[in-house]
Design a binder for these strands. Structure first.
Length: 488
RNA sequence: CGGGGUGUAGCGCAGCCCGGUUAGCGCACCUGCUUUGGGAGCAGGGGGUCGUGUGUUCGAAUCACACCACCCCGACCA
């Protein structure tokens, strides 16, 4: 495979596409805006899903599955919700094809028109709350803590692999609570789960915050989010958790009797992360040589390459080390393909982001050593083969830590505090990144800034220190800075 | 949905302007030999409805018209 990744400094968007395609994460498909997730990309998703699923269960949630199709009428029950999603819905109108009269293929059978059209879910609040009406009668039925792993379809005008596809995989949690406070606590708890996942597993630092009203989820009272900063200085919303108030309970008439025999509407949350996280992972760590995957999510953590491949002594050492690594719970493969040379394999595994590579050649066998290379820094060391397993175990932890540290330093170095609109514009043009600035709290000012700079308020950070200041546009008083950035 | 671009072998491209043998090149692929510690060398070989349709012409990858698809940029959105 020829080296053909566009360097980041030449064209970041092209670099990203090259990496996704050439790195083996995904392919374009026959359907516009829909991608084929290839084994490496899917393995990454499986690893993410496994960790998140465990975290959801540890916080008391259970999985269920609701239908792909939603009756059209459901969408219109919650006014804001339908407004938010109506423009990007795939609609099923018929249920049968037939052979064309002129023999040119198949056509939709006009006789098979559906009584009520079905919407391919863009998200499942409506069908789930329609169901919750039957499931919830009493305070004893609450809280109801359900998650589903599913695909959804949003007919986006502009798509990008993983970051925005017409169909994507995600999880959506939908919970029902007896009180406002409990629902808010749930939304915050799940935001915390997402933030911990991002930092501890993806090695991706995030800012936790709440969205402004104009950036809120359609139908939510409050939208919590985690925002990450990509290498090109653009922000990426990596996960959202919504406090839905009683909006869906009222729209679908979901009530319960409390301890005092009072009929009350249920309080709701929903929260989700998607395959977009794979895009976030790529744009946080990878480099011009290919993917860089954090050890805790990498489908393959260690690859062993013997040089030459077929020589017995090298293979003996390789098998011993592989066995020892597996005992330590580390995933490892020995590349036994003797039709490719070592140099080719080195480049190939670097492209695919395998965190650690062990090379064993004749020289090594003679000296009782192996060469260990780490993907993130490309540093190599030669150490005794007996100490290799322990060294690799420590190295994987070190890489995981180092990736997070490096990403944190990047965010710190690219978070700017500005107090004038001139500085605000200049920073966005010259550097990009997160920009912390004072804002007067109005939607008008927010829209004006967006129109003039393409930057949006990514969030009002939860950990923001109170600070008196003046809005960079109107000069009106402000009590804290908010996080601006141009975003994906 | 606006702007731009591209459709020729699995991938990347040339050929098109100025129509004319059997449509080329690189990578990849197959066979053989030599190689093997950073994307091997040599030799031989296989693979094509030139995006689709209609038209012009003795003749179309090449000219005209229409259509389709995809990519990039923007507006909208996870």
């Amino acid at each position: 495979m020829a080296k053909a990744i566009t360097p980041r400094h030449v064209d970041y968007a092209e670099w990203y596409n090259d990496l996704v395609i050439r790195g083996g994460l995904a392919d374009y498909s026959a359907v516009r805006g829909c991608m084929i997730i290839k084994p490496l990309g899917y393995a990454l998703w499986e690893n993410m899903r496994a960790v998140l699923d465990r975290m959801f269960k540890e916080t008391g949630h259970v999985n269920a599955y609701f239908p792909l199709f939603i009756p059209k009428s459901f969408l219109s029950r919650e006014a804001q919700h339908v407004e938010g999603f109506a423009k990007e819905c795939a609609v099923v109108t018929h249920h049968r094809l037939k052979l064309a009269d002129d023999g040119s293929g198949v056509v939709v059978d006009p006789e098979a028109k559906l009584e009520e059209e079905l919407i391919v879910r863009p998200t499942s609040e409506t069908i789930i709350w329609h169901t919750y009406r039957d499931w919830i009668q009493s305070y004893r039925d609450l809280p109801l803590l359900i998650n589903q792993w599913a695909n959804v379809v949003r007919w986006e005008l502009r798509t990008r692999p993983f970051l925005r596809t017409a169909e994507f995989l995600w999880q959506e949690g939908h919970t029902a609570h007896a009180t406002r406070q409990e629902a808010i606590a749930e939304a915050e708890r799940m935001l915390d789960v997402y933030a911990r996942f991002a930092e501890e597993y993806m090695a991706m630092p995030v800012v936790r915050g709440i969205k402004t009203p104009s950036e809120r989820f359609a139908g939510a009272e409050e939208t919590y989010c985690i925002e990450a900063l990509m290498q090109d200085g653009k922000a990426l919303q990596a996960g959202t958790s919504h406090f839905l108030g009683q909006n869906f309970a009222k729209a679908f008439d979901v009530t319960f009797l409390d301890q005092n025999n009072q009929r009350q509407y249920v309080w709701a949350t929903s929260w989700g992360v998607s395959t977009r996280l794979i895009g976030a992972l790529v744009m946080t760590h990878s480099d011009d040589d290919g993917l860089v995957l954090p050890p805790r999510l990498a489908p393959l953590q260690v690859v062993i390459i013997t040089i030459p491949t077929v020589e017995e002594p090298q293979m003996t050492v390789a098998l011993q080390i592989a066995d020892a690594l597996r005992q330590l719970g580390i995933s490892v493969e020995i590349d036994t393909d003797d039709t490719k040379r070592a140099g080719f394999k080195f480049a190939e595994y670097e492209l695919r982001g395998v965190p650690v590579r062990i090379a064993i050649g004749k020289r090594d066998v003679e000296h009782g050593t192996v060469e260990i290379a780490r993907r993130d820094t490309k540093e190599k060391v030669t150490i005794s083969s007996e100490s290799a397993p322990d060294y690799v175990r420590a190295l994987l932890e070190e890489i995981q830590r180092s990736l997070l540290d490096r990403a944190k330093r990047f965010v710190a170095a690219n978070t700017h505090y500005v107090d004038t609109f001139e500085d605000f514009e200049r920073i966005l043009e010259e550097r990009g990144g997160f920009v912390m600035a004072h804002w007067d709290g109005t939607a008008q000012t927010e829209a004006l800034i967006k129109e003039r700079t393409k930057a949006t308020i990514r969030c009002i950070p939860l950990n923001a220190e109170p600070e008196e200041g003046r809005c960079i546009v109107t000069g009106k008083p402000s009590h804290r800075r908010v996080l601006f950035a141009r975003a994906y």
